[in-house]
C-alpha cells in the first residue's frame, strides 16, 4: 500500500463537542492519508460514532476544525450537501429507502445530486452490484433482501457517489453473525483497492486485518494511536489494556467438572 506521506486527505484538529452540557468530544485530533484505513475502537459512549457524524456534518461542533483536502469544511458557511458527495457514509441501520427499488436507491444520489448521465450512472451502479454479488437483486425492493444484503447495497449506494473517503459506523453491529462476514469481505476488498476509510467497529479480528492505524478512544478523547500489531499485543495505556481484556474470557472460565 503506497501512502502519500505528505498530504493528509482528511484532518481533524482539536475537535470539541458538547451535548446538553456534557462534553462528548474533547481535543480530538486525527489525520488520515489517502488510501489509509483507520479503525476507531473504544467502549460504548466514548464518542467514536459522534466523531464520525461530526466529520460528515451530521453533528455540530463547538470548536476545532475539519479539513478535507486542506479545505476547512467545518465553517458555518459550508455547503454540506456538496461536501457530502466526497464523504460517503454507511450507517448501522443501513436505511435503504423502502419505497424505491435497489437500483433507484443507488441512483438517487448520482442522478439528482451529481446530475450525471443516466446511462453512465447506471453502468457504474451495475458494475458495483456485480462486485458485491447482488446484481440479480437490481430491481428488487429492500424488504425482499436480508440484512447483510441491504448493508452491501448501502455500501454500493455510498460508493456510487465516487467519494474520496468512506465512513463506516458500526455497519455490522445489527447483523446476524453469519452475514457479518459477507459485509466485511466487501470492506476488505475496498481497502485493498486503495479507498480511504474510517471505520468504527467492534469486530476485533476485522480491525486487526484491515487497519493501517488503530485509534483508541475513551470518554471523548483519543487515548492511543498505534498500528494494529502494537495495539493488540501491548496497548500503551492502562485503559487500552482494560479494553483489550474485555474481549478475553480466559480468566473468567465457568466452573466445570
Amino acid at each position: 500500500m503506497v501512502h502519500n506521506t505528505q498530504e493528509a486527505l482528511l484532518e481533524v484538529k482539536k475537535l470539541h463537542k458538547d451535548y446538553d452540557g456534557l462534553t462528548v468530544l474533547s481535543d480530538v485530533s486525527l489525520s488520515v492519508k489517502k488510501g489509509e484505513v483507520i479503525v476507531i475502537l473504544g467502549p460504548s459512549g466514548c464518542g467514536k460514532s459522534t466523531l464520525l457524524r461530526c466529520i460528515n456534518g451530521l453533528e455540530a461542533i463547538q470548536s476545532g476544525k475539519i479539513l478535507l483536502n486542506k479545505v476547512d469544511i467545518s465553517g458555518s458557511d459550508t455547503q454540506w450537501h456538496l461536501i457530502r458527495q466526497k464523504i460517503g457514509m454507511v450507517f448501522q441501520s443501513y436505511d435503504l429507502f423502502p419505497h424505491m427499488t435497489i437500483i433507484d436507491n443507488i441512483l438517487l444520489g448520482p442522478l439528482k445530486v451529481q446530475k450525471r448521465n443516466k446511462q453512465e450512472a447506471r453502468e457504474h451502479a451495475e458494475k458495483l452490484l456485480h462486485r458485491v454479488g447482488l446484481i440479480d437483486k437490481i430491481n428488487a425492493y429492500p424488504r425482499q433482501l436480508s440484512g447483510g444484503q441491504k448493508q452491501r447495497v448501502a455500501i454500493v449506494r455510498a460508493l456510487c457517489m465516487n467519494p474520496e473517503v468512506m465512513l463506516f459506523d458500526e455497519v455490522t453491529a445489527a447483523l446476524d453473525p453469519e452475514v457479518v462476514h459477507e459485509v466485511l469481505k466487501v470492506m476488505l476488498e475496498l481497502a485493498n483497492e486503495g479507498m480511504t476509510m474510517v471505520i468504527v467497529t467492534h469486530e476485533m479480528d476485522f480491525a486487526k486485518a484491515v487497519a493501517d492505524k488503530i485509534v483508541f478512544m475513551d470518554q471523548g478523547e483519543i487515548k492511543e494511536i498505534a498500528s494494529p500489531v502494537d495495539f493488540f499485543q501491548e496497548p500503551s495505556t492502562e485503559r487500552g489494556k482494560q479494553f483489550i481484556n474485555m474481549f478475553n474470557y480466559n480468566h473468567l472460565n465457568k466452573e466445570r467438572e
Partner: peptide, 20 residues
C-alpha cells in the same frame, strides 16, 4: 435515519422531502 441517509448522499433539504 431515513432523513439522515438522504443527507449522507448529499441531497438538499428540498430533495429529501421530495424523494424520500
Amino acid at each position: 435515519h431515513q432523513k439522515e441517509s438522504g443527507i449522507a448522499i448529499g441531497l438538499t433539504e428540498l430533495q429529501i422531502y421530495t424523494y424520500i
